[in-house]
């Protein structure tokens, strides 16, 4: 794979993720869970994982989409920004590692693992650093359940993209 092609591919995914991050803040949430977001901006992250761009590049996309998206939506350095950053990094790491380790992994499985670690990291950051109360554990199972639904939608989007768009596999 040509290096320029890889750079532009990562840039496209970052731009896509930032735009989705911005637009999804206008969507109404069906649940009253503190700190919850739809989390659709994770599907470019999932796409980068399943096309094998490498852990470092996936981490770049995760950090940059949270930075750009939060600057666009005016949440930069707010508590929601820190939760989003922690969740994005945790899910990027978890998805990359499970893609490398699990030979039988599928898109849905990787997406569910990413959502689980993202929600766990967000709850930990909120409980330890933001509200400093263990009461937020009450919302943790609801957040996980919401994450399962979002992860299913994300994996459906990604498998549709993989089916209809020809993307070269990035062999490092």
């Amino acid at each position: 794979m040509v290096k320029t092609k890889k750079i532009s591919y990562i840039a496209i995914l970052t731009a896509l993720a930032s735009a989705v991050y911005y637009v999804e803040s206008f969507l109404p949430l069906p649940v009253a869970i503190p700190g919850a977001r739809w989390g659709f901006s994770n599907f470019p992250l999932l796409l980068s994982v399943v096309t094998d761009v490498g852990i470092a590049n996936t981490l770049y996309i995760a950090i940059l989409k949270t930075l750009l998206g939060s600057i666009l939506s005016g949440r930069f350095l707010s508590p929601m920004f820190w939760m989003g950053l922690g969740g994005a990094i945790a899910s990027a790491l978890a998805m990359s590692i499970s893609f490398k380790l699990m030979k039988k992994a599928s898109v849905l499985g990787i997406s569910e693992i990413g959502a689980f670690f993202s929600n766990t990291a967000q709850t930990l950051i909120a409980g330890l650093f933001i509200v400093k109360s263990k009461g937020i554990i009450w919302y943790y199972p609801y957040m996980l359940f919401f994450g399962v639904i979002t992860a299913f939608i994300n994996s459906a989007i990604v498998s549709t993209i993989l089916r209809s768009v020809k993307i070269d596999q990035f062999k490092n």
Binding site: V107, G109, Y140, L144
Partner: peptide, 24 residues
């Protein structure tokens, strides 16, 4: 790459197990 496989059910069962554990 496939959309879903059998191993996904184990992942989902583990996640739902954690949900039920924390709810209880």
């Amino acid at each position: 790459m496939k959309f879903a496989k059998k191993s996904d059910f184990f992942i989902l069962i583990i996640i739902f197990g954690i949900i039920i554990l924390f709810m209880s």
